[in-house]
Simulated scan of single mutants.
Amino acid sequence: MNRRVHLNAHSAVRFRKLLAVSASLSALALSACSSVHRDDKALEHPLAPASSSKVATASMDPDAAEKTAVLKTYSSFWAEQVKAYARADIQGTDLKKYATEKALGQAMGDVLVMKNGGTVTTGAPKHRARITQLTLAGNTPEAVVQDCLDISAWKTVNRRSGKVQPFPSDQPLRYLTTAKTEKWGSRWMVTEVTPDGDHTC
């Protein structure tokens, strides 16, 4: 079973409650099939300008544009989520532009726990995300993003005192996180995010 992870000090509560509400989240199952394309090019956040060699490689990949769009949506989803946690409120963010009901519900559950606990976050996590599955056939194209999430600089603080709350002693600071995405019309959307504390990176 996956160890429940804490994205930051109070994310302990956050992901425990959140993942429980979202039903039990399973271990990563990233299997390939004939309709799936694998991409071994990892993209770090913030994204650095692509080198000429990477651009040349991308130009030879017929799915390069879709992969770029998926990663852009994933990055934007996290940027808006960080904003929401920094104020313990999703109002004033664009989370709904990048997340469907389940992923949005996860974020809203986190925000509610933080609001009730009188905490917010400062800083932001770092990412090393890559696409591990991409299926463009069918009515709803799908993609899976695997991310090495680094939360060491993403702190939970008491809203009133501003005091940083330490990470639990068993909290991994870098671990794999998997996001499922779907293309709805012309836009990619994050449908589900699953942290895996048993797999550090």
Score class of each variant (00 low, 15 high):
residue 1 M to T: 05
residue 2 N to H: 09
residue 6 H to L: 05
residue 6 H to A: 13
residue 10 H to W: 09
residue 11 S to I: 04
residue 16 R to Y: 08
residue 19 L to Y: 11
residue 21 V to F: 14
residue 21 V to K: 14
residue 21 V to G: 15
residue 23 A to M: 08
residue 24 S to A: 04
residue 24 S to Q: 06
residue 27 A to E: 05
residue 28 L to S: 10
residue 29 A to G: 00
residue 34 S to F: 06
residue 36 V to M: 04
residue 39 D to Q: 11
residue 47 L to F: 11
residue 48 A to Y: 09
residue 50 A to I: 07
residue 51 S to H: 06
residue 51 S to I: 06
residue 53 S to Q: 08
residue 56 A to I: 04
residue 57 T to H: 03
residue 59 S to L: 15
residue 60 M to R: 15
residue 65 A to K: 15
residue 72 K to E: 13
residue 74 Y to W: 07
residue 75 S to R: 05
residue 76 S to I: 01
residue 78 W to K: 07
residue 81 Q to G: 07
residue 83 K to G: 11
residue 83 K to Q: 15
residue 92 G to A: 06
residue 93 T to E: 15
residue 93 T to N: 11
residue 97 K to E: 02
residue 100 T to Y: 05
residue 112 L to C: 01
residue 114 M to K: 03
residue 115 K to I: 00
residue 115 K to N: 01
residue 118 G to T: 00
residue 120 V to R: 02
residue 123 G to D: 10
residue 128 R to V: 02
residue 129 A to D: 08
residue 130 R to C: 05
residue 131 I to Y: 09
residue 136 L to A: 10
residue 138 G to S: 05
residue 139 N to G: 06
residue 139 N to A: 07
residue 141 P to N: 00
residue 141 P to K: 00
residue 143 A to K: 02
residue 146 Q to G: 01
residue 147 D to T: 03
residue 149 L to Q: 06
residue 151 I to V: 13
residue 151 I to L: 02
residue 152 S to Y: 02
residue 152 S to C: 07
residue 152 S to F: 02
residue 156 T to E: 08
residue 158 N to E: 09
residue 158 N to Y: 04
residue 159 R to D: 10
residue 160 R to C: 01
residue 162 G to L: 03
residue 165 Q to R: 03
residue 166 P to T: 12
residue 167 F to S: 04
residue 168 P to W: 11
residue 174 R to E: 14
residue 183 K to V: 03
residue 183 K to Q: 04
residue 184 W to A: 04
residue 193 V to P: 00
residue 193 V to A: 00
residue 198 D to E: 11
residue 200 T to C: 09
